[in-house]
């Protein structure tokens, strides 16, 4: 068994994973927390993306809006990641065999990468354009990419539920 498989088995065989599988309320409860957190992650990121695209919050400088919204985004992301990991633990092997789950993880990675690239490259001259109602094209591309990636993340999340029968 590879180290990765051992690690997966360790989580899946843990008493926490067992409790989530066995208890009728625990799985839907964690799932509900996961949905609330994902909604806040996606909704708050959309606020920023719509600003980057020049569609909304046009009177707010990008930097200021970002620092106002991101604390909510990151807090919600931590809750979404933790609750998501608990759900994953309970049926780890099945999730890893599910294409939509793997795609969802890859898309979240891509959304993160898009954000890092945006901060590193596009936002270097932020003070020059942040007050403009319509940011430069490269910024709008980053915003559009982010919107599409997060829509795809939510879609994959929903499709996981339809391709793993016993999870509803």
């Amino acid at each position: 068994m590879s180290l990765f498989q051992q690690l997966i088995a360790f989580f899946e065989d843990s008493s926490i994973a067992d409790a989530i599988r066995e208890n009728d309320l625990l799985f839907p409860l964690i799932e509900s927390v996961h949905v609330v957190a994902i909604c806040l992650v996606v909704g708050s990121i959309l606020v920023l993306d719509l600003r980057l695209l020049g569609f909304a919050s046009l009177d707010r400088p990008v930097g200021r809006l970002t620092s106002a919204v991101l604390p909510l985004t990151w807090s919600a992301f931590i809750v979404a990641a933790c609750s998501g990991f608990l759900l994953f633990m309970s049926h780890a092997t099945k999730y890893l065999a599910n294409g939509y789950f793997i795609t969802k993880m890859a898309l979240i990675g891509a959304a993160g990468l898009n954000m890092i690239v945006f901060h590193a490259v596009a936002a270097r001259d932020l003070p020059k354009w942040e007050a403009r109602r319509l940011p430069p094209p490269r910024v709008r591309v980053a915003g559009a990419l982010s919107v599409l990636l997060w829509i795809a993340v939510v879609a994959c999340g929903r499709w996981i539920g339809f391709t793993m029968e016993e999870l509803q």
Binding site: V35, V36, I38, C39, L40, V42, G43, S44, L46, V47, V69, L72, I151, V154, R158
Partner: peptide, 14 residues
């Protein structure tokens, strides 16, 4: 439906 819930809920929270 969920994407719209995300918009409404996040707006209310903000």
């Amino acid at each position: 439906h969920i994407l719209c819930v995300a918009i409404v809920f996040s707006s209310a929270v903000l």
